[in-house]
């Protein structure tokens, strides 16, 4: 048995560029024959040389913004996509050469709630996927009952999935991944679209699953989630892992730094430019808040005391008003900003 649950070496995935995107770069002739267009299409690199070593029994969080390559990495690990180059092994099996062994070692939940049949009941879904996972019928029946019980879906198990809430669908999708008791779980944005309560329950479930011995690789673009759940975190951006450490380790990297968090109403990029040029300001990232015309501005600096007066003076200009201000310890969000110069969520 391999020491690592998941290993990737220089994993790369390139896609033929999507039609619309390609059209921008070259005038394309439209042909009626849709198969085997021969001219080489421009390629887009979604995953760009990723190296990961995930320990047995750990929760590993892959944290990154939209389009970073998280889902593409997961799809290569669960054999839905073939790497363009590089290598990946799951449970010691090569994802290309031993695809079937990899599939037997994994339970995967891809993002979105469409991975199960809405015209079947929860129980019918699980029974169906149990057969696909080659679980003997007698064992399967008990296993399905147990999972339904565990996920607190007993009362609704025989209703059609289309009548379920998003949280219930996600629990069926996770049950589907757990059916064969695979040692490794891949969860792609598991809490996406869930209400806060359902998301909290799901995070508790993930922790429980780890206690039961599962290795878990999860992706997320919520830094609180990655921080709270993960033993180690890989930060991924434009297909590359730009930092990999424990949550504490990551935060320590910018430990000397402090973050000034400003809440303002009305924002002018000119003020941003002015503040950036103030000596002692390392980075500045504005983020629009839910409320109309309110912004949260994060400033990283080595010494907040020295620059506070200047900051306050420069902010109250041109209709921009300071509403609130905090000096806080850096979060993973700030780590991300520090590494990439942009916010995790736009």
């Amino acid at each position: 048995m391999s020491d690592w649950a998941v290993v990737t070496e220089n994993l790369v995935k390139k896609f033929p560029q999507r039609a619309q995107a390609a059209e921008k770069t070259e005038a394309k002739k439209k042909s009626f024959w849709p198969f085997g267009k021969k001219e080489p299409r421009p390629m887009f690199t979604a995953v760009d040389g990723v190296n990961l070593q995930i320990k047995r029994g750990e929760i590993f969080g892959l944290l990154g913004p939209n389009g970073a390559g998280k889902s593409t990495t997961i799809r290569m690990l669960c054999t839905l996509l073939e790497p363009t180059s590089g290598r990946a092994a799951v449970n010691g099996f090569d994802v290309v050469k031993q695809a079937n062994e990899v599939r037997r070692s994994l339970g995967t939940v891809l993002a979105g709630e469409r991975s199960i049949y809405w015209k079947l009941s929860g129980r019918e879904n699980l029974t169906y996927f149990a057969a696909l996972n080659h679980i003997p019928p007698a064992v399967a029946k008990k296993r399905v009952d147990d999972l339904i019980e565990r996920m607190e879906l007993k009362e609704r198990a025989d209703e059609l999935v289309e009548k379920y809430s998003t949280g219930m669908r996600q629990r069926i999708a996770i049950s589907r991944a757990l059916l064969a008791r695979p040692p490794i779980l891949l969860l792609d944005e598991p809490t996406l679209g869930l209400d806060p309560q359902a998301a909290r329950n799901l995070r508790e479930l993930i922790v429980d699953l780890q206690k039961e011995g599962h290795t878990i690789l999860l992706t997320t673009h919520y830094m609180e989630e990655a921080d709270q759940l993960s033993d180690r975190i890989g930060i991924i951006d434009t297909g590359k892992i730009i930092a990999l450490d424990t949550p504490e380790g990551l935060k320590q990297r910018i430990d000397q730094a402090e973050v000034i968090r400003l809440e303002v109403s009305g924002w002018d990029d000119k003020i941003g430019a002015q503040l950036r040029s103030v000596a002692g300001v390392d980075t500045l990232t504005p983020r629009k808040l839910e409320q109309d015309s309110q912004w949260e501005i994060s400033l990283q600096t080595a010494n907040s005391r020295a620059i506070l007066p200047v900051v306050v003076e420069k902010v109250n200009h041109n209709g921009t008003r300071l509403l609130n201000m905090n000096i806080v310890r850096p979060t993973l969000e700030d780590v991300f900003i520090n590494l990439t110069g942009k916010a995790l969520r736009d």
Binding site: N100, N133, H134, I135, R143, A180, R181, P183, G213
Partner: peptide, 9 residues
């Protein structure tokens, strides 16, 4: 952990 999977292929 129940280390073997339930699958019998």
């Amino acid at each position: 952990m129940e280390s073997t999977t339930l699958a019998r292929t």
